[in-house]
Design a protein around this nucleic acid. Structure first.
Length: 889
RNA sequence: GGGCGAAUAGCUCAGUGGGAGAGCGCCUCGCUUACACCGAGGAUGUCGCAGGUUCGAGUCCUGCUUCGCCCA
């Protein structure tokens, strides 16, 4: 039995089971097939997958299946990322909802919570990926906290440490007072703030009248000021440099210095220098050998013992109090509204407090250069290509990477300090100091940036540093597909570590897929509550529809608003494919397993026009789809297949071949070939419905993944058949339109032909049998021969043919003279335009083929105009009744 | 402030120098033995604005406007 509808919910579990039983996704390093490998970007273990994950999963799976069907040994390694800071935040939020904190429950209980969370969410995420039908190599799934993975991280760290590329030192960092941790520059999210710009006068230290006025948004950091800076090129700065002025809250004398970083067009052109609380100021301070003072503590509170009323207050209160003091003392000259960008922690949204703390740093300049080179020389290609520029911009002038975090969760920094002060890095934690043998060792308390471990993903998942068969066979990987947002955080760093530790690029092609926005154009996010659950879409419309939608939008140039109607239309497409199969299944002979028996290939003479046409089109579509997959253009692939399947195979070929199926084995063979080819081409994108349909045929592999990628015989190409059928379709459409206008054609298709049609002029070959029969059936007309011109039939110009038709029903409306007149005016104007164009420089300058085409159009327009005039004349003559207007004539 | 991208039908979007398209929605018609999750036909556009290049521009260039993203 085949139901009238494709039921995704019923078919999907079956096919997932088939694929898993056959271990479709399992990669065999010992095979002699060419390798195609991908590392699935490991989702953060922070919750369920969102549409972005689904999109990327569908895209990668389509590539995996395509290459597998083309004969590659595909290795697609899935996994999950422990996401230290993100996961810790999730757990902390849960604890907060329970009215407790991680400090209250303690390390041990916290670790247990995390372990339970990981166990639960990891299974959930992998299950979600399965539901989409992805063929990852589940046996190789990795987690960034796996022992082997941890070993790789430590080896990388130790190597960089021993090479002096990782060092520890106090520098200004992006400090999140809520996470109580440093974060890297890339994890700072800038948002617009509407604050106040305070203009504060710093009095001259010598008591003179000429102080200096600075502008600041952060008056609470004034107690940490160590200088006032002006731009040396600023004329206003003349005579200022070298003076001492008084910091206005505590009255400390500080120098006025000159630095080119100071912008003359902002504020007063004088900048207070607070190296302890501003990155630019830190840089200026370093340049001038200035001390670092601090006024804010790690908990985001004021630390100003010299100003007891501010001391211990939250920063916002500190600001308010500082402003009050400055107003009271008269140092506040004026206040202006200020719109500026303020850094926030991209995980918890808290305002970042730049602070100077000791952290672990990775020197980037030396590492960045080779990573830039491999993109410049094309070893790594970005899709779309413009993302290469963004990548290169970031590598240029990169600051050192803060790799340490002060979290409870994550990989501990593999460094110990012995009682004698020897600092060393290790892979297996040693019992004693390798330098002095001291056994009292202190393990560094910090953990590593999550992205430090992610940076090793492509080779660490394949077993590095061991020379595993997988590493030798599947590394470098072929394609990395990911979202734009983590180009810097992740993609660039993978290239850096890949080159440093494997002497190879980690992947050759980087696909950056579009971001899915909410229907209102906003970014989807949990806090906005406008997210869409991909599995809800799978439940509602089927995994194939979701995947095909992903293929449509994934590589677009622009982010796309989520539109469920697009998924719906693709679900209908799955149903269409199912019913196309159903037609063959109900019409063709079946074997004992109820599968469509395959007829032997017919001799070429047994093929008629429609057969040759659809085979030729099938070959063209195969070429186009294949090259689209090669270029990662899945949108082109799915669009081409959708249009071909529905608009050509179903709408035309299926309609024409229906009646022949029972009697003509050649028709059954062609229909089967075309459908199976189409299903095979669609399989990478819509694996469920295509397998469900293909399995209705005999002599099919258990799944299309095991089928060879189609490569139609050369002799399927047939330009003449394509041209002839195109004309058949054009004629059919024109007649349908004309007849429906005049008669209401659809009403009486079954009651016999509605019009008699004669070919008045044109290429008789184009409308020879069987083409004439096609038009007759599809348009509901009958052909009439003979040269009985001038009998009053209505003319209809279609391309090179001029037809003449007379209605065979009584209710035919005559042509509406007004409408004819309008149409004539339109055609005349069109022809006049073409004529002018052809009379001008176009004729001599444009390519001959283009000119010919335009000439053809003009000829057709002229014929059409003539036909319209003829009809107008007939309609305009009173008493003229079209002869032959009755069916019983 | 710098960079990138986008602007096409009521909505969501394709369209990579040569006759403006799809899906949804809308109108008319048809429950036809694959599919009503269907079929036939139809209406709907200053391709953001202004210049330029070209025989020819939705498409290439410049400027502007608006929106989005990234960076500072």
């Amino acid at each position: 039995m085949m139901d009238k509808q494709f039921t995704a919910a019923a078919e999907e579990p079956h096919w997932r089971a088939v694929w898993e039983r056959l271990e479709i996704g399992h990669a065999n390093p010992d095979s002699d097939r060419p390798a195609f490998s991908m590392a699935l970007p490991p989702p953060n273990i922070t919750g369920r997958l969102h549409l972005g994950h689904a999109t990327n999963g569908a895209l990668q799976d389509a590539l995996a299946r395509f290459h597998r069907m083309r004969g590659a040994e595909v290795c697609w390694v899935p996994g999950t990322d422990h996401a230290a800071i993100a996961t810790q935040n999730v757990i902390e939020r849960q604890l907060a909802e329970e009215g407790t904190t991680k400090e209250a429950i303690g390390r041990e209980a916290f670790d247990a919570r995390v372990a339970a969370w990981y166990a639960m969410v990891q299974g959930e995420i992998l299950e979600q990926l399965r539901r989409l039908g992805t063929t990852c190599d589940w046996s190789r799934a990795r987690f960034t906290l796996d022992d082997a993975y941890v070993r790789a991280i430590r080896l990388v760290f130790r190597t960089l440490f021993d090479q002096g590329l990782i060092y520890r030192g106090p520098r200004i960092v992006n400090w999140c007072p809520r996470c109580r941790s440093a974060i890297s520059d890339e994890e700072v999210d800038f948002r617009e703030h509407h604050d106040t710009f305070y203009f504060v006068r710093y009095a001259a230290a010598d008591g003179g009248p000429d102080g200096i006025t600075i502008a600041t948004a952060r008056p609470e950091t004034i107690p940490a000021d160590v200088a006032v800076a002006v731009n040396p090129l600023d004329p206003r700065s003349a005579g200022q440099v070298g003076r001492l002025v008084l910091e206005p809250l505590t009255g400390r004398p500080i120098p006025v210095i000159a630095d080119p970083l100071v912008r003359v067009d902002v504020g007063t052109g004088a900048l207070k220098i607070t190296p302890g609380h501003a990155p630019d100021d830190y840089e200026i301070g370093q340049r001038h050998g200035l001390p670092v003072r601090s006024a804010i503590d790690l908990d985001g509170r004021m630390r100003t013992p010299e100003l007891p009323e501010l001391d211990g207050r939250p920063v916002e209160e500190g600001r308010t109090l500082a402003v009050e003091r400055l107003r009271a003392s008269g140092a506040m000259e004026r206040e202006e509204p200020l719109v500026h960008m303020v850094g926030h922690c991209d995980r918890c949204g808290t305002v970042i407090e730049p602070l100077v703390t000791p952290q672990w740093w990775c020197r980037m300049s030396e590492l960045a250069e080779p990573a830039a080179r491999v993109v410049r020389d094309g070893t790594i290609r970005f899709h779309p290509a413009r993302f290469a520029d963004e990548y290169l911009d970031w590598l240029d002038g990169l600051r050192d990477w803060c790799v340490s975090r002060q979290l409870w969760l994550g990989h501990r920094v593999p460094v110990s300090t012995c009682a004698n002060g020897h600092v060393f890095s290790w892979v297996e934690e040693p019992a004693s100091c390798p330098t002095c043998g001291a056994v009292e060792l202190e393990h560094d308390p910090d953990v590593l940036d999550t992205w430090f471990s992610s940076a090793l993903w492509p080779f660490a998942i394949l077993g590095w540093p061991d020379a595993t068969p997988e590493l030798g066979r599947f590394y470098p990987t072929a394609v990395l597909s990911t979202a734009r947002g983590i180009l810097r955080l992740w993609v660039a760093r993978m290239v850096i570590t890949g080159l440093r530790f494997t002497d190879a690029v980690p992947f050759h092609d980087v696909c950056i897929h579009a971001t899915v926005l909410a229907p209102d154009g906003q970014v989807m996010s949990k806090s906005r509550g406008n997210g869409v659950d991909p599995l809800a879409m799978v439940d509602r419309h089927g995994a194939d529809a979701v995947r095909a939608w992903a293929a449509q939008i994934a590589m677009g140039t622009q982010d796309t608003r989520f539109d469920e109607r697009r998924i719906e239309s693709l679900a209908r497409f799955a149903n269409k494919l199912w019913n196309m199969t159903r037609l063959l299944w109900t019409s063709l002979p079946r074997d004992s397993d109820d599968r469509i028996r395959l007829a032997p290939p017919p001799v070429p003479e047994a093929l008629e026009l429609a057969d040759r046409w659809i085979l030729a089109r099938c070959a063209q579509v195969t070429d186009r789809v294949t090259s689209a997959f090669e270029q990662f253009d899945l949108s082109e692939a799915i669009t081409t297949l959708y249009d071909f399947s529905w608009g050509e195979v179903a709408d035309w070929y299926w309609e024409l071949v229906k009646e022949r199926l029972a009697t003509d084995p050649a028709a059954g063979w062609v229909a089967s070939q075309v459908l199976r080819t189409t299903l095979t081409l669609l399989h990478p994108i819509m694996p469920f419905v295509t397998d469900a349909c293909a399995s209705r045929f005999a002599e099919q592999p258990a799944t299309l993944d095991l089928a060879a990628w189609p490569s139609p015989p050369r002799d399927w190409a047939d330009g003449q058949a394509v041209a002839a059928m195109t004309h058949v379709i054009d004629c059919t459409r024109a007649l349908r339109s004309e007849l429906q206008d005049a008669i209401g054609a659809a009403r009486s298709v079954r009651s016999g032909p509605m019009a008699a049609v004669r070919l008045r002029h044109g290429d008789p070959v184009l409308l020879a049998e069987p083409a004439r029969g096609y038009v007759a059936r599809m348009a509901g007309i009958t052909w009439r021969d003979g040269a009985d011109a001038g009998d009053g039939g209505r003319a209809l110009v279609v391309g090179a043919s001029e037809l003449e038709w007379t209605p065979l029903t009584e209710n035919a409306a005559g042509p509406d003279p007004e409408q004819l007149q309008r149409e004539l005016a339109r055609v005349d104007a069109y022809a006049a335009g073409l004529g002018a164009k052809l009379a001008g420089p176009f004729a001599s300058r444009a390519p001959a083929a283009v000119v010919d085409r335009e000439r053809g159009k003009l000829a057709e327009a002229d014929r059409r105009a003539r036909a319209l005039r003829e009809q107008l004349a007939a309609a305009g003559a009173p008493g003229t009744v079209a002869p032959g207007s009755g069916p019983d004539r």
